[in-house]
Design a protein around this nucleic acid. Structure first.
Length: 161
DNA sequence: GCCAACGTTGGC
DNA sequence: GCCAACGTTGGC
């Protein structure tokens, strides 16, 4: 079986969880819980695999940037926060037998010394086509092509890891 | 803070 | 199964 490495962009509001927060986590890794959108759920459950590359994007902040990269360290598994009645991510329609929501674990790869701004992404021929920039795109996770992945690193002035 | 673009919900 | 009302997301 051949496994092709894929690439994704994960959005996070830095007020809620920033790449610096990820760096401060034990082992610099975290679970990515709380996704409550079916399209994104399907990606988490079916498509996002160990070893995949993650662009860590800071949304709803000025400036909006790709702050660094991470990698997937655990494939999709049920989001158990949906089962806890006292948790803000609780969903009464999810159950042990039939989990409705999924999450993956990611681990920090690198924090860009110079984060790549949304403006830079728009200005670059390759990254201008990213799903992130598409009008009306609200998905908190979007697929990224290998070319886009490489271009982001080039703009950031760092080596791919 | 505004609001366009979505996604979800629920009455019919 | 339609669709109006409502809720959420996230760039601006």
């Amino acid at each position: 079986m051949t496994t092709e490495r894929r690439y994704w962009l994960f959005k996070s509001e830095p007020d809620v969880f920033s790449i610096q927060d990820l760096a401060a986590e034990k082992g610099k890794r975290t679970s990515w819980e709380g996704v409550r959108n079916y399209q994104v759920r399907n990606m988490l459950r079916d498509d996002i695999k160990i070893g995949d590359g993650v662009l860590f994007y800071h949304s709803r902040v000025d400036p909006m940037v790709i702050a660094g990269t991470a990698q997937v360290v655990k494939d999709g598994y049920p989001d158990h926060f949906a089962l806890d009645p006292n948790h803000k991510y609780f969903d009464e329609k999810s159950s042990d037998d039939n989990p409705r929501w999924f999450m993956v674990d990611i681990k920090l790869t690198q924090i860009f010394k110079t984060p790549v701004t949304r403006e830079q992404l728009k200005a670059d021929k390759t990254t201008a086509g990213m799903k992130l920039l598409a009008k009306g795109s609200r998905l908190s996770i979007t697929p990224v092509t290998e070319d886009e992945w490489l271009a982001v690193h080039e703009i950031a002035g760092v080596k791919v890891q």
